[in-house]
Amino acid sequence: MFRHTPLRVAALALLAVAGIGYAFGASYFGLEILTEIAILAILVLALDMVAGFGGMVSLAHGALAGVGAYGYAMLQAQAGVAPPIALLGAIGLTGALAWAIGAVCARSHGIYFIMATLAFGQMAYSYIFETPVFGGDDGLGGISRLDLSVLGLDLMDSRNFALFCLAMVALAYAACAFVLRSGLGRSLSGVHESEQRMRALGLTVWRVKAHVFGLSGMIAGLSGALAAQHIMYVSPGLLSWTVSGEALVVVILGGLGTLVGPLVGAAFFVVLKHEVGAITPYWHLVTGLVLIAVVMSRANGIFGALEAWVGRRRAARQPQPLAKEVPGNA
């Protein structure tokens, strides 16, 4: 059950200050990293919404983001649609596709759900890879970014684009929090706890799953459309299942079902990748070992561990321990 605790609000404020502060201080390379973090953060917010709060561990989210990227590229660069409309179109298209995937997979659970989403993700990958209009292995180029000159912003400037992406992270976070606190989001938490009981209470479970999956897909689509604008080029690699796998790793590193944790995870992951990548070409090895260590420590990622630690301290000070938010059951 998603709720804003003081710790979460404090962490959000800190992240916002750090992100904006860094955007104004960083060099070109730093801004690229910040943009990368922001785009990944949006994707993992979308994934945490379904996996952390609905138990729908999706391996389709990388492909969904890829569909958002291709959707934007096709609409904007190929069909010549105005960028804002192309952005909305890409988000809507990805949402519709995600809704359908969610509806079809709603009956599968556990490893079967993971596999079913993986299958649909791979289907999208193969389709885009094999269909000539999408440019095959070469991908599509000639993509432009949104034109915000009315606001006096030139998004071709990397600082402006990084700030724009940060604003989109804030928007995506607000959207996730909004959905999770609505009746639909509360139902999703109930379904996560006991599907059987929610059904017996009169809830049409598959619809809740499909709706939330669709909304999550829209956010993943936003992430993809931003990625397309960032590198101004799309290729099938965007839809690879390893992107979904990495997104899942980021959610776990940050703290599943905390919504704030995945933001931390995204920053941690991208920085780790670049830092380790600068020292050795074998950064996968480091990531793999970190992931194994985090999972085996049984903590709920970085932010989950922090929440647990704060919870214990508070419990030690108060005579009656009634911790409302316990990580893993948020």
């Binding site: 776990i252 996968h284 990531t287 999972v295 085996m296």
Partner: peptide, 9 residues
């Protein structure tokens, strides 16, 4: 997840 990490390693 652990075996996923193992793939990377």
């Amino acid at each position: 997840l652990v075996t996923f990490g193992l793939i990377f390693a």
